[in-house]
């Protein structure tokens, strides 16, 4: 499934929008999510899951190809935790 399929779904299931408008709406939703996460704020979608921004400290790592030791710099990463509801849906 791609963004185009989501747009198609919105267009079919929610009447009253053109395809172009449906595409704009889907775009707005993902842009809003991205901007929020960029600010370091989390996104909670009940029934689906949470997107959480986490700060990682620098740590020692190793280049798996050469075995050379390197320092992995401190960074901010995004993690997704699926909701219990979604997990149940996938397993019944």
């Amino acid at each position: 499934m791609t963004k185009a399929d989501i747009v198609e779904n919105v267009y079919e299931k929610v009447g009253g929008f053109s395809k172009k408008e449906a595409a704009e709406i889907v775009e707005t939703v993902f842009d809003t999510i991205k901007e929020t996460l960029e600010r370091g704020e989390k996104i909670k979608i009940s029934g689906f899951g949470n997107f959480v921004v986490r700060d990682k400290n620098a740590r020692a790592g190793r280049n798996p190809q050469t075995g050379q030791e390197i320092t992995i710099s401190a960074r901010r990463v995004l993690t997704f935790k699926p909701s219990q509801v979604l997990k149940n849906v996938l397993n019944d």
């Binding site: 963004k3 779904n9 889907v26 939703v29 993902f30 991205k34 689906f48 997704f80």
Partner: peptide, 30 residues
């Protein structure tokens, strides 16, 4: 009311896709 419906349809369609075992790819997002 429409906005509520829109957001629900978006996440419901993603959920349905995952339930079918499909992969979802949103460019620029993940």
């Amino acid at each position: 009311g429409r906005a509520e419906l829109l957001v629900h349809v978006i996440f419901d369609s993603m959920e349905a896709s995952l339930k079918r075992g499909e992969r979802i790819e949103i460019r620029g997002f993940g």
